[in-house]
Each structure stands twice: as C-alpha cells, then as structure tokens.
C-alpha cells in the first residue's frame, strides 16, 4: 500500500499524518476536513479474508471510498483507517468477530482523496462448515445524532491504546 501524495487531494488543503497499523506497517496519509454524505438507500458491502485483506467490494464501496475496485481488492481493510478513529474500536471489532460474533459500530472512514465519510457498520464472520473463512461488512447511513456523539467520544479515546 503506497503513501498518499498531495496529488491525491485534488487541490484541497490536507494535513499530513503518519499512521502505524496494528501489523507494524507505516504509511503517510493526508486528511482533508470535508465530509462526503452517505448516499440514501444504499449499502456499502465488502468482504475480507481472515487476515482483513479485502476480497470483494460492491459498487457503493468503490464510489464512496474513491478507490477503484482493483485498488481495493488485495489490500488490507485499514486502507480506509482515519486517524480520528480510536485503535480500541478496531481492537474490539477484531476481538468480537474472531470469536464468531457480530460487531457493530460507528466508523469514520478515510477516502482516497483525504476526505471522510461516516457509516454505521456491522461486521459478521462468514462461517462455512463450522469454520470462519472470512468476514463481511455492511455499512448503512448513520444517524447524525450518533455521529455527533461518536465524534466527541472518539476524541477522548484517540491516542490511548
């Protein structure tokens, strides 16, 4: 996964961050303070393997993330990680789904162009013949009240781990 460059931002002003992911990989990203609203009536759907590598992405996912399907498939799902998201949220996600349970939460996602979009996400394990073979995530349009609450809550959690 490559570092972001200024060219990704299409002329919008961006703030540089270095993200270190849970697997130790480090990447430069830029954050643009611009929200893209979740489209009405749509669902964003993707699947990963058991290691969190994206295996399928639907059209709404491609449209909202700003990446092409080819750029998403084969990459770690953390390609969307926004620095305003606390690490504990994703630790909880992985702890829950790897035990075969369903996880839900509000997530702020980073787009290819540095802008962001909020979702209400639900992640389920894909259990086949009694074994977890991957995960599916479905995101829907979140309530503005919940987004405001999570914005405040996540601010207090970022930086802790």
């Amino acid at each position: 996964m490559r570092d972001m460059t200024i060219d990704d931002l299409h002329g919008e002003p961006g703030v540089e961050h270095w993200l270190t992911y849970a697997d130790g990989f480090r990447r430069r990203i830029y954050v643009v303070d611009k929200e893209i609203p979740f489209p009405e009536g749509r669902l964003i759907v993707s699947q990963t393997d058991t290691a969190g590598v994206i295996t399928t992405a639907n059209q709404s996912f491609v449209a909202m993330s700003g990446f092409t399907a080819d750029e998403l498939i084969g990459q770690q799902h953390y390609i969307l990680r926004h620095p305003d998201m606390p690490a504990v949220a994703f630790k909880d996600l992985w702890d829950t789904v790897s035990q075969g349970k369903k996880w839900t939460g509000y997530v702020k996602n980073l787009r290819k162009d540095g802008a962001y979009y909020w979702v209400f996400a639900s992640v389920v394990p894909n259990i086949r013949n009694g074994r977890i073979v991957g995960y599916t995530s479905v995101r829907r349009k979140p309530s503005r009240t919940k987004v405001a609450e999570c914005t405040a809550l996540y601010r207090t959690l970022v930086g802790q781990s």
Binding site: K102, T104, S122, N126, T136, V138, R140, S143
Partner: peptide, 11 residues
Amino acid sequence: IDLMVALTVTA
C-alpha cells in the same frame, strides 16, 4: 444470508 444477518441489528 451473511448480509441479512449483518443487517438485522438496530443502530
């Protein structure tokens, strides 16, 4: 079915 399961949660 996984999709349906993922959807059957209230926000």
